[in-house]
Design a protein around this nucleic acid. Structure first.
Lengths: 229, 229
DNA sequence: GATTAATTGCGATCAGTGTTCGCTATTCTA
DNA sequence: TAGAATAGCGAACACTGATCGCAATTAATC
């Protein structure tokens, strides 16, 4: 009974004995990310990626055990876009906000990232680096380590949520005007019968626009609430 | 050029002229939810649902325009399990925590819910009711309505995140012991080389277990940070 | 340097998916 | 009772992720 490594991050990128592989994990991820950037995550099929690489789809399984692993490669690759030199190590809040801004940028540049299952199981190397830098920003805080990890988890989830909202807004504005009207009609109808007075009140004022300022404001309050006092 | 309603919540459940349908949306959702509870969201295929209903898969498209709409039906159905009588309207924080506990219960009873795309576009009736009740809990707070909606959005995302974590832990404990060991080995290897000192420090202490108390503690701090002062 | 064993690329194929088409049967409206 | 709208659905379509087995290539071993 042999214990074979299950995660792609534990498996060696290539065997040591046979013929040299024609691609690298990074090269494959790059091609897949380009496809997703252009036409969404649904455009990333084993066949389309293989074709973009100039090979057959069965060959991909020499690099990856499943499509999910391919997506994991993509996610870690774009996480590598984060530039940690923006952290000036002044105070922890500023550093985390800078990190959040970087992360938001990754989401906006790769909208399909929000369609990706939230990081589970084994983290890729760039995700680990992200954690490490976030924890470093909090190093002087007198808070239990696991509490810090909790806070970073919530932080990451909020960044994701706001980015998703921004992306949706962007998409609606650009094209699906009819759907926007339909949704408004839907809500209008719902609110007209008086069964949802608080919703009606909350929606009566013009909406707050989702942007970087909103992200910073919300992250500040969330992080203060979680880590201060 | 006709404007046809796009969301399932705007479309009438049945036509008024022809033969009566054999099922209701709720009945279909019930069957689909049972399948997902038993074998995950992947077990919910148009064919499996149709077979459980005793019909052909093509018939399902008389009720639903796509599988995504079927999933939307499922999501709204389980949101209907929330019991709003637990809100005693004492203070807003207690009410929101009670709401969070209810929502957490829904997630734990229907683990597939975390695999579902976060609510986008048109909300179902039960999601609207949820919003209404959350806003009602905040009615005496002197905060802009859209800020309240933001806070509720973050609140919901945090509940979802923590429920997901709990579900994963539960799953790992019960079966995939080998994977647990592999992940530990992965992290251990990563931390041994000294490149991630802060991560190593944070993980040195025994982990905080994810449960209802953790959820309440985190939600309290997040909500206080977002809505107070 | 020859042999062995591991490794890669991949055509062909499989089982399964969401979805559409065209038809029949039913049932409400006029 | 005639007509129109709707429901059910068998059969098919275009795709998908994944597997199998073979030939080609290369490193390690004797």
């Amino acid at each position: 009974m042999e214990t074979e490594p299950t995660s792609i991050w534990l498996r060696p990128a290539r065997g040591s004995r046979g013929r040299a592989p024609e691609h690298t994990r990074d090269g494959i991820a790059t091609v897949a990310v380009h496809l997703a950037d252009a036409d969404g995550l649904g455009a990333v099929t084993m066949r389309s990626v293989a074709q973009a690489l100039g090979g057959g789809s069965a060959s991909l399984y020499r690099y990856v055990e499943s499509r999910d692993e391919l997506v994991a490669l993509m996610v870690d690759q774009v996480n590598g876009e984060i530039d940690y030199t923006v952290l000036d190590h002044a105070d922890w809040l500023a550093d985390l906000l800078a990190l959040g801004g970087q992360s938001r940028g990754v989401y906006l540049r790769h909208p399909w990232l929000t369609d990706t299952p939230a990081a589970t199981g084994d983290l890729g190397p760039h995700a680990v680096a992200y954690l490490e830098h976030a924890l470093r920003a909090l190093r002087d805080l007198d808070v239990d380590g696991h509490r810090k990890l909790e806070a970073i988890g919530v932080f990451t989830a909020v960044v994701r949520l706001l980015a998703r909202t921004e992306i949706e807004q962007r998409g609606v504005e650009l094209q699906d005007r009819r759907r926007q009207l339909a949704a408004a009609a839907h809500l209008g109808h719902l609110l007209q019968d008086g069964a949802h007075p608080h919703l009606a009140a909350a929606l009566s004022a013009p909406p707050v626009e989702a942007d970087e300022d909103q992200t910073e404001r919300l992250l500040t309050r969330v992080l203060r609430g979680l880590l201060e006092r």
